[in-house]
Amino acid sequence: MSLQPPTSPFVPFSPNPALQPGTPSSTTPLSIAQKPPPVSSASLRYASTRRSIYDRNLNRTQRAELSKASFAFLFGEMIQYAQKRVSGIQDLEKKLNIQGYSIGQRLLELLLFREGRSAKRETRILGILQFIAQTVYRHLFNKPADGLERSHDKDDEYMLIDHEPVVNTYISVPKEISLLNCAAFVAGIIEAVLDGSLFPARVTAHSTPTDQYPGRTVYLIKFEESVLEREAMLAGGKP
């Protein structure tokens, strides 16, 4: 029988298959949607140094720090950008949540990759919450979260406490919208880490100021039913 070269179902150089050419999606500018897909390798653009993101070392920026002022300006612009497109506090917090979500997805994979050979996935609720409170928090803000509690009356709710969220340092919310907490951005990051590890949850940020910490924020984490059922099964399996 003649040997045929294996035809891989993988199609090189095809444009992003999630987008159909010719039908403008809500996120692509019209010009891209109407361009015909490139068909030859000559149309793929490389940087002149022939380096792509695959050549960058993932551990190179492990200890890099970002200036607080740079982040504050960028974050302020993100909030203003979101504010123009929404009407209401809930929508604004949702927009910030979405902005943080994609960061959380990437952070989860990156941090687990950086742990190297001893990396372990989290399978229990307490494990993943500790991962967020310690590893993720330390990576983002150079300090662990200030507290992790479980709600007394509801067993699907957990609370992550931050005395002074770094993202809120320079922000003063006007009295008219005092219910807004811009740490909804961090809540989005936390929600993505939980969703990615298969602990679907809704995470919201609430301001709970005290005299000592006027900016104290509590992230309320509400897990879905399926998570509690699985947790109960796993706990029952190994007493």
């Binding site: 002022a69 300006f73 909030i79 504010q83 320079y170 003063s172 919310v173 811009c182």
Partner: peptide
């Protein structure tokens, strides 16, 4: 650095 402050307007920033 407060996104809710409009430039050249009266300052109403609690943190300030």
């Amino acid at each position: 650095k407060n996104p809710f402050y409009q430039i050249e307007m009266p300052i109403r920033c609690e943190a300030f």
